[in-house]
């Protein structure tokens, strides 16, 4: 009975309403992160299908798998897609992509699609890196900052923590918020220090949820440090896997004294959606 507490749920979806054969431009975006891979197919300006999977050790295979699942049983094949843009950590490994665009621009573009064009600050909370992106009113990136070296891998650290505490990863955030008043945060230097220090709190009589609170507070604090460097302005949007962790998002909002926009889209898809939209721009320009 070994449960993989660190494993987050993968997801796929393909639209049943859109008749892709009648759409004029079909484009795709693939975002291969260090930890998760997303493929998105867009028909004109609507989301047609997506897949959000864990990245395997073979990036090429992960990309193919995600694309296959995003197409689902729709009957569409890769040949029906006019243009594909790849982005992310492993963007060099998408054999069927025509172009590679960096993740900062893809996340910025995707965030504006998901949350609307009022977005001025995008914070991408990925497994390996955290990026704070500032946008001009017209959507171009004006400035961005990424985490300091020692703050690398916060998302991976949370997986490690879920495994150590044996708490399902998707419950960590909510559980940490049940604590009335946040305890002092643990070490904000690196995830490894934070993890061991958090485990050490049990010796001081902390309850599980209090440990989670002290831990996620530290992670949020570290991210806040990166975000602060770009002078964030309203409206604020979070993207990436950790944007689904309420324990981080709520604490970040509290520390930044700002409320982030919400949307029914999965924030982890932002990069791939942005890539698919940039693919569309490219097609239209030609």
């Amino acid at each position: 009975m070994t449960q993989d507490y660190w494993r987050w749920p993968e997801s796929t979806w393909t639209s049943k309403d859109i008749d892709w054969k009648n759409s004029s431009t079909i484009t795709a975006g693939v975002d291969i992160g260090s930890n998760s891979t997303q493929a998105v197919v867009m028909c004109d300006n609507s989301l047609f299908g997506y897949a959000n999977l864990r990245t395997g050790p073979d990036y090429r295979e992960s990309a193919g798998q995600a694309m296959k699942q995003a197409l689902g049983k729709s009957g569409m094949t890769i040949r029906d897609i006019k243009y594909t843009v790849a982005t992310g950590w492993g963007s060099r490994n998408v054999a069927f992509a025509q172009k590679i665009v960096d993740e900062v621009n893809c996340h910025a573009r995707g965030a504006r699609f998901i949350y609307g064009s009022s977005v001025k600050t995008v914070v991408d909370l990925g497994a390996q890196t955290c990026k704070a992106i500032r946008l001009y009113d017209w959507g171009r990136v004006s400035d961005f900052m990424m985490n300091d070296k020692c703050a690398t891998g916060m998302g991976r650290g949370i997986e490690v923590m879920a495994d150590l505490l044996q708490v399902p990863i998707q419950e960590m955030g909510e559980r940490s918020l049940t604590v009335g008043k946040d305890p002092e945060p643990v070490s904000t230097t690196c995830y490894d220090f934070a993890n061991t220090e958090a485990i050490g709190l049990f010796r001081e009589g902390y309850k599980e949820n209090e440990v989670l609170a002290a831990y996620l507070f530290a992670i949020a604090w570290r991210i806040h440090g990166t975000v602060g460097k770009v002078n964030p302005e309203k409206e604020l949007a979070f993207t990436g896997g950790l944007a689904k962790n309420a324990g981080i998002v709520k604490r970040l909002e509290r520390d930044m004294k700002m409320t982030a926009l919400t949307s029914e889209y999965d924030p982890q898809l932002a990069g791939a959606i942005g890539a698919a939209l940039i693919a569309r721009d490219t097609v239209e320009k030609d």
């Binding site: 990036y59 690398t152 891998g153 991976r156 650290g157 690196c190």
Partner: peptide
């Protein structure tokens, strides 16, 4: 020097096949 940086480098190697 650091396990976290090592992970980052290892992920880079994977992405280069």
């Amino acid at each position: 020097g650091c396990g976290v940086f090592a992970e980052m480098d290892a992920l880079g190697l994977l992405s280069r096949n």
